[in-house]
């Protein structure tokens, strides 16, 4: 049904979105924690910076990454010179661009979960002898897991379709950085590509729907496990 090249795009999209979630999940949980519970100078600034990718054109984010992580950039230069790691025009680079774009989605979702969590429960754990890590692992983390799950699924689904930042930072290389939306774009640009574009669009649609249904199902199970339902 799909050509080898089209399957590549599907596989690549899943790989890029998956990696982006893996990369951003832990920092996003920490940032959400700091924003929800922390009282430090610059909290509002951090809040604004985290949310920038939601409001800045994705092309601008891609351009910013290019400036920072390009082989002559302040971060990309040393990475390339010292470790031989190059991010521009690579799958890893596509994952990085996707991670930056979906970061605020995870932060928002985790933070919502955290703000709905009664701090009194952590106090109760404390009076029962639980130190901070113990409390975090046995009370806070389980109770915020629905927020983390929802954030991860949303970020994954959105990551499958990230276009602007990826094409700017990682370019449109079949088999390397050509994810589903980039493949669809290329198909629409080539003569006679309408059929391929249609097939890929259907795949996109099916993946998104499956993701959302799965998230709903997992969320319900988690809710029951947490004693909410």
């Amino acid at each position: 049904m799909l050509s080898a090249e089209e399957w590549d795009a599907v596989r690549l999209s899943l790989a890029v979105a998956g990696r982006s979630v893996l990369v951003s999940l832990l920092p996003a949980v920490l940032v959400a924690w700091a924003l929800a519970r922390g009282r430090f100078p610059g909290r509002m600034l951090l809040d604004a910076v985290v949310h920038l990718p939601l409001v800045v054109p994705p092309v601008v984010v891609g351009w910013g990454l290019l400036m920072l992580f390009g082989v002559r950039g302040p971060v990309g230069g040393p990475l390339n010179d010292w470790f031989g790691v190059r991010l521009v025009f690579t799958t890893e680079g596509a994952a990085l661009a996707t991670a930056v774009m979906s970061f605020p989605l995870i932060v928002r979702s985790v933070r919502l979960g955290l703000e709905g969590l009664d701090p009194g429960l952590e106090e109760a754990a404390r009076t029962l002898g639980a130190g901070w890590l113990d409390r975090f692992l046995t009370v806070t983390l389980p109770l915020m897991s629905p927020g983390i799950l929802a954030g991860a699924v949303t970020a994954f689904a959105a990551g499958l379709g990230e276009f602007g930042a990826v094409i700017t930072f990682a370019s449109n290389i079949p088999g390397e950085t050509q994810t589903l939306p980039l493949a669809i774009y290329s198909a629409t640009q080539s003569p006679g590509g309408e059929a391929a574009a249609g097939r890929l669009a259907l795949v996109s649609f099916a993946l998104a729907l499956t993701g959302l249904l799965l998230a709903e199902l997992l969320g319900r199970r988690l809710g029951r496990w947490l004693g909410r339902a």
Partner: peptide, 21 residues
């Protein structure tokens, strides 16, 4: 002394049981 090392058993007005346990 940190609350977790005071060994004061507290019973709160709103019970504060852990809902996931």
């Amino acid at each position: 002394v940190a609350p977790e090392r005071r060994r004061c058993g507290v019973v709160f007005q709103d019970a504060r049981l852990f809902p996931h346990l």
